[in-house]
């Protein structure tokens, strides 16, 4: 096979996969808005995706906020702008790092988990069994995960924003001789509703991506343990790439 043929084949395969995912995502959205709604499943997934992700998101946010404060202080010193640490920390966390890092952490924790769980259900015929029990797997399995992730990620990002800013505050007041009250006042004076809203819009989009990609990979897995492992890996990689790409798109649309 010539290199051109290989490129052509890879391009067609990518487009085919993108088309399949788009159809799957459309069916998932339709399942989210049509009865029956399995509230107990949505609640269970909200706990799994939201509540149990709090530690990993919180730890990530505090360290990122702290490192960001240090870097901005060092960089700002080059043009006498050290005092802008609180302003840039809150801007960076709310608009960019909070949603993106929470999204990437959940791509690893949640998307892979969904793919592995649903992949195992697929290869052990549990999804087929569900169909024979008059229960639509899209409504019972996919929709609750998509709804829970889309609603929970913005809440996690609010927590990440607060903890990230606190990380910056701790470093600034303990190591960089900032006055605590002034740091907090500057943070609140500088941040705008639009900054927080942008972060929350991104978070909702990332939540949808994480759940939909994980479910897509798991639902379509085949080939036993190997297939389930491949589904989990693909879910992490595809979620991460889609999160970063959509992050740029949403930012560009919002800025315009």
């Amino acid at each position: 096979m010539t290199p051109f043929q290989q490129i052509g084949r890879a391009t067609l395969a990518t487009l085919r996969e993108a088309g399949r995912f788009a159809l799957f995502a459309g069916r998932a959205v339709a399942a989210c808005f049509s009865p029956p709604f399995y509230l107990s499943q949505i609640w269970r997934q909200a706990l799994q995706i939201g509540y149990f992700s709090l530690p990993v998101v919180g730890l990530t946010a505090v360290f990122i906020g702290a490192a960001l404060a240090l870097n901005i202080f060092v960089g700002g010193a080059r043009f006498n702008a050290e005092s802008f640490v609180p302003n840039i920390v809150v801007l960076g966390i709310t608009r960019e790092l909070g949603p993106v890092l929470a999204g990437l952490m959940l791509a690893g924790r949640v998307s892979a988990g969904i793919a592995a769980e649903m992949g195992t259900m697929r290869v052990t015929e549990q999804i087929d069994a569900m169909t024979t029990l008059s229960t639509d797997p899209f409504r019972f399995l996919v929709a609750p995960r998509v709804i829970a992730a889309t609603l929970c990620l913005p809440l996690l990002v609010i927590v990440a924003d607060i903890i990230g800013v606190m990380g910056g505050y701790l470093v600034a007041t303990r190591s960089l001789d900032f006055n605590g009250a002034i740091y907090i006042r500057n943070t609140f004076n500088f941040v705008e509703n639009a900054d927080v809203i942008l972060g929350l819009i991104k978070a909702a989009a990332f939540g949808f991506i994480i759940a939909a990609v994980g479910a897509y990979q798991g639902y379509n897995s085949s080939g036993g343990a190997l297939g389930v492992g491949r589904a989990a890996t693909n879910a992490v990689v595809a979620s991460a790439v889609l999160i970063l790409a959509s992050n740029y798109l949403i930012t560009a649309l919002y800025v315009e």
């Binding site: 259900m121 052990t124 015929e125 549990q126 069994a129 569900m130 169909t131 029990l133 008059s134």
Partner: peptide
Amino acid sequence: AVRKIGMLFQGGALFD
């Protein structure tokens, strides 16, 4: 129509 059907799967396919 599926309500008229029952199915016993080879591996049981019980929900873990």
